[in-house]
Design a protein around this nucleic acid. Sequence first.
DNA 1: TCCAAACCCTTGGATGTCCTAGTATATTGC
DNA 2: GCAATATACTAGGACATCCAAGGGTTTGGA
Lengths: 168, 168
Amino acid sequence: MATPLPRDPIADARLNWERHGWSDVAAPMAAITAIMRTQQILLARIEGVLKPFGLTFARYELLALLSFARSGALPMNKASALLQVHPTSVTNAVDRLQGAGLVFRSPHPTDGRTTLIELTPEGRTLAKRATAALNAEVFAQSGFEEQDIDQLLRILGAFRRNAGDFSE
Amino acid sequence: MATPLPRDPIADARLNWERHGWSDVAAPMAAITAIMRTQQILLARIEGVLKPFGLTFARYELLALLSFARSGALPMNKASALLQVHPTSVTNAVDRLQGAGLVFRSPHPTDGRTTLIELTPEGRTLAKRATAALNAEVFAQSGFEEQDIDQLLRILGAFRRNAGDFSE
DNA sequence: TCCAAACCCTTGGATGTCCTAGTATATTGC
DNA sequence: GCAATATACTAGGACATCCAAGGGTTTGGA
């Protein structure tokens, strides 16, 4: 970030692939590498906006998910499935959010194995404020053209469905 | 990955955004979230292929970068800039690669501050084999249509240039 | 010439992700 | 009804990333 590089390292990698006789996979290699790098840039922006709220992206995602839950509570395994992360990652996030007084655990009324996560009033308020900040400072200035966003949604949506994310 | 979800959680998030009156940023929010999730899926595939070689993606990237360096050696700060990661991440990767006998450190001939990283013969061989595996098992079956790959390269390339990755 | 500022790498700490294993509770099949 | 299997959460460990700080080396201006 400090100083822009004189040349695009991903374009260079693609040239290297072609020089070595891997032209058939050079383009997908470059595209996949570009997705990796783009994710890194976006994550850094998001974390920068959330930092003043004492949140990381992982914690924000859980908070936001809870704020949209009809009942206001969600089983941990449900959160794990919806966020597409390992159950231990949810445990980790809940531990920290609970320590910050933003959520609390409660036993499931009928299934003794299951733990519900619920927002505290502070958690609900913070989720609202953090979302407003992300909307204004990241999503409203994404750096993508409007028609490119449609392309991304189409391409990545097909990819994710194909990868087994959802069956719909 | 276990079981596909009945509904696309990102499409649901988009609906939630629209319901709450944030329609103007719902699409970019969904696109950015999709990039995050796609990166996660791709990284998991890549790590899966590299695991038999005892490599992670971070270590592979460094190994591949070195294998394309003309002189076969690269200063650590250069590697950090090209890979777009923090210098401490390079230190970490070099420590582990060196422990595995794949690279070694050598002092810079004229600048006492700088450390050069060089491939060992084993490192060079492993880089070749790992690249062949990634080409065959990931890049050749990326899951993207050919014209979509062009779209991705165009859209993400513009985004990265705009984000200050490179000036070219 | 010489000292302050800039640069390079490493150490230590915080966070997040995954995996493996262990404990507790539910469900299933005989 | 009870044992075997499946499911839910958590503890511990391996990795990777970043930040802050520290020690050594170079550079540049007074």
